[in-house]
Design a protein around this nucleic acid. Structure first.
Lengths: 198, 198
DNA sequence: TAGATTGTTAATCGATTAACAATC
DNA sequence: TAGATTGTTAATCGATTAACAATC
């Protein structure tokens, strides 16, 4: 059965928690309590992974971590790149937290010649004119789109026909590209939603 | 009636779209088509704002933008700060996109003396030892938590008893603090979810 | 065995969509 | 007036929770 996106979005939470657990087995009740979920929800979510629990003992922590990693990464390392080497783009290029989910950030692309040519955290910042060739060569399937809102639509369109399969869009604008999955992540909007709840 | 969080999270999307619209009036059908929503959903969402539509004409774009801004900001500018002045924290401090939602980022806090004392984008990086006093003085109600995962729990706890009402947590770890609302935003996890869908 | 825990089936809850009367 | 569009009520859909048999 296909795993719902809302369940998929909880898998990293389980994974991060399990990586802090030092026992051999853990029950759905313990996981639920630690994360603030219902325990049936935990079992339902984990049932989407290859892991199986044992009555009276719970789940093997090692097996569960492997099973979630398997689901999240589909078994193989994915290569990602940043499009737009401004402040956020460069921060993402330097951030080491992607390897935790089987993702390697390999390059950044920018239209500004003042930014290209240099390296950040050992990764090249490449001119947008050379982007298509570079995406092919590096086998990049994921893009983090960090250009200004005004340039976002065009930048997304420029990824059509490349190996890119998905875009994580940080710009406060709707983008789309033929054959590419888009997920929006407007940081400021997230803070605004939080601000309006308090 | 209380506005559901899922609807609240769409308000920034409406707002950003409306800011690109150049007509005086717009219908729910047009908005829905542009954003990929159902048109009834759009009307339901907008019904939570003070704006009212007019049969045959739709919604006044100006009135709608004001109404959404009102809902999102609760009418007043909110002050935010960054805790953890690493790459991501500094990028957020320099990012100009918060003003669009009525939020001003005023300072960063860090425990590392090598990072404190300086200014980034005209905003001070302040020692964590001076944080409580500074939060009071500046009237900071929102924190973007950008410390490493290992330091996240303790950092969140240190915000108890300050004017901080909400935390946007970028660390891949669960945090909580008495009387403070937490929202998680693990950028790498978002990319991982996207990667596992393709 | 007894009892803790899983996994599944049924019930509930909340969000989205469909239908439609009201309105200009 | 006729018809486009809103706003609301009812129906549907999907996610979460409750109940419980199966298992070790």
């Amino acid at each position: 059965m296909k795993i719902p996106e809302i369940c998929l979005s909880r898998l990293p939470v389980y994974l991060n928690y399990l990586r802090t657990v030092r026992t051999e087995y853990i029950s759905s009740r313990e996981i639920a309590k630690a994360l603030g979920y219902g325990e049936v929800l935990v079992r339902k979510d984990l049932a989407y992974t290859p892991a199986e629990g044992k009555p009276r003992r719970g789940y093997s922590v090692e097996e569960l971590k492997k099973a979630i990693e398997e689901k999240l990464t589909c078994g193989n390392l994915k290569r990602a790149a940043v499009l737009g080497a401004g402040g956020l783009g460069r921060a993402l290029l330097a951030y080491g937290g992607f390897s935790r989910y089987g993702i390697e950030v390999v390059a950044a692309y920018d239209i500004d010649p003042l930014k290209t040519g240099a390296e950040i955290a050992g990764k090249p910042v490449i001119a947008e004119s050379a982007m298509r060739e570079s995406l092919e060569q590096l086998g990049v399937s994921l893009i983090m789109l960090c250009v200004p809102a005004s340039a976002a639509r065009e930048a997304a369109a420029s990824l059509e026909g490349t190996p890119v399969k998905a875009i994580l869009n940080f710009a406060p604008a709707q983008v789309s590209a033929e054959g590419i999955t888009v997920r929006n992540l407007d940081v400021a909007a997230n803070l605004a939603v939080l601000a309006s709840m308090i």
